[in-house]
């Protein structure tokens, strides 16, 4: 591939919405995330352990939550983007059988030479409420091409 295929969201301004990501969470996904992040806490793979501790089910570990947040933002921002900061406040657990819905909106932009620094407010919610809310700072190369897909 050539540099011309380094795509991004094109012009970005405050108020832009990111494409919604909806993940139909399964037990397999939660365990895969926990083990890929080398987090062997039983609450992230053992339903009996988690419920005995008062949780509604086994639940996603924080590393996986951050991994999905990063993916959600770079799915939109493209491979030329660099995540600078992921700051989240944690809420209800993310559990199997409940879809996790990611929404995001650009809240600020700042041109800095060849870079455009973008602040994105993100929200991850399931049937119980907000799993995580917060802010991602992502740096986009100013020259990146628009993504070849419709804006949402």
């Amino acid at each position: 591939m050539s540099a011309a295929s380094i795509t991004g969201p094109g012009p970005v301004k405050a108020g832009d919405a990111l494409p919604v990501l909806e993940v139909e969470l399964t037990t397999t996904m939660i365990i895969a995330g926990a083990i890929a992040s080398r987090d062997y806490m039983p609450a992230h793979h053992d339903r009996e352990f988690a419920t005995a501790q008062g949780a509604p089910d086994m639940f996603m570990n924080i590393l996986t939550t951050n991994g999905y947040v990063s993916r959600f933002v770079t799915d939109w921002a493209g491979p030329g983007a660099m995540i600078r900061n992921i700051s989240i406040r944690l809420g209800v657990p993310a559990v199997p059988g409940q879809s996790l819905r990611f929404t995001g909106e650009v809240t600020a932009t700042d041109d800095n030479g060849d870079e455009r620094e973008v602040e994105v407010a993100v929200r991850l919610a399931n049937d119980m409420g907000d799993h995580a809310t917060g802010t991602v700072l992502v740096s986009l190369p100013a020259a990146c091409q628009p993504l070849p897909r419709p804006a949402v």
């Binding site: 591939m1 380094i6 890929a36 996986t64 990063s70």
Partner: peptide, 24 residues
């Protein structure tokens, strides 16, 4: 393992040719 677990298809994590053309 990680990108498969999160289904993260950002090519800078596995595609050497494309990643070489980015800032990274």
């Amino acid at each position: 393992h990680w990108v498969d677990a999160m289904d993260d298809r950002n090519p800078v994590y596995l595609d050497q040719e494309l990643a070489s053309a980015t800032r990274f």
